[in-house]
Design a protein around this nucleic acid. Structure first.
Lengths: 195, 195
DNA sequence: AACGTTCTTGACCGAATGGTCAAGTGCTCG
DNA sequence: CGAGCACTTGACCATTCGGTCAAGAACGTT
């Protein structure tokens, strides 16, 4: 990898990342070789090692950038909504929608979570996501909208429930996203509000 | 792999599976070679291929058998409890406890979910688990204990929330399991009951 | 003790794989 | 035009991997 990238270089980099992400998601990280990536793109192997110092670094980079993108989407969806519970709902909806449009990253996050080498990156992403949710939950507790429980645990539970519903209905069974989203929102809001 | 196994053979087979599961969980499936497995056990490579026809078959077998074990534990914990909501709670508690005692399988399930080759086995395991939970949820709905929503979706949400809480607090942060379990139970029961 | 079966050995194989590099191409700007 | 940097090529390399197999050890049965 070199420092100075022209526009052409930046485009190639993006192209490599997007394409690699698709292959990784389809066949898995380890079974997808660097040769697979460059060959299906019709370029030489040297191109890969011009932009990335290793296959490992490539995936780490993909994980970082895609999570940034998801977060941007969440913040955009939340806007300046004043009600913290509503902000959580909007966040949930935005997340499910984003994964629907970027299916490949779902599998990727999942694989990375099972590999020690990517744990640091993934953990950082996860911490950021939880911290975001915790901020809203704390505010909701202060406002008396949500049961006074450990906000971090509530945040983790929300993330877990949404991910599972998304995986099963949106990816495995290809059912319409609407009902899944409604179920996720309903379950999570009742779960945090606590009768 | 051959058919007739003596007691000695069965023991070897178990030993291989347990040991491989540990290595897979520690270093990952692909980075752990068949040579790694047999060498750290002090046996020749032929031993492995006497009991398993391939590395892939080994992991599939591990996934199947460990899930059976988890299920046995759940059923044992539930016993003949008459209240369906209570059965769900007991199931949640048993699951978290089981994963605490069998940490290695948590990572393994996660990896397998990201690899197409193991999708069939994992999907089957998952379907069984959801069907189990759905039975209790349906009964709870009939009894008027739980909101009349899609029982499968509620089951998925429960599984997701529990897995996430278990992963974060029990595995990543090594916090005491009690508070995590209580949070999971509370969140899930409120989530399904629906205010 | 002898015989068939179960189990074990470890050298060996072909087929990748991640990564390197000397050589060359094409773009940009003075 | 030509110098210099950004980019590309693809043969090559050391290594490792999953899997085979002929040979033999250990066991159980009679």
């Amino acid at each position: 990898m070199r420092r100075k990238l022209t526009q052409r270089g930046k485009d190639r980099r993006r192209q490599l990342m997007e394409h690699a992400a698709e292959l990784f998601a389809e066949r898995g990280y380890h079974p997808t070789s660097v040769s697979d990536i460059v060959e299906s793109l019709g370029v030489g192997k040297g191109v890969f090692y011009w932009y990335f110092s290793s296959k490992e670094e490539l995936l780490a980079e993909i994980l970082r950038e895609s999570h940034q993108d998801l977060r941007r989407r969440q913040q955009q969806a939340i806007g300046d909504e004043p009600n913290p519970v509503m902000r959580i709902e909007l966040g949930i909806r935005a997340t499910i929608e984003w994964f629907l449009e970027h299916r490949k990253y779902f599998t990727l996050f999942q694989f990375a979570a099972s590999d020690e080498r990517f744990a640091p990156v993934l953990r950082r992403n996860h911490d950021v996501a939880i911290a975001d949710a915790v901020r809203h939950i704390k505010e909701a507790i202060v406002d008396g909208l949500v049961a006074d429980q450990n906000p971090e645990m509530l945040a983790e539970a929300i993330v877990g429930a949404c991910n599972q519903l998304t995986r099963t209905y949106v990816f495995d069974r290809h059912e319409p996203v609407d009902r899944t989203t409604e179920a996720a929102v309903s379950f999570c809001l009742h779960g945090i509000v606590g009768k």
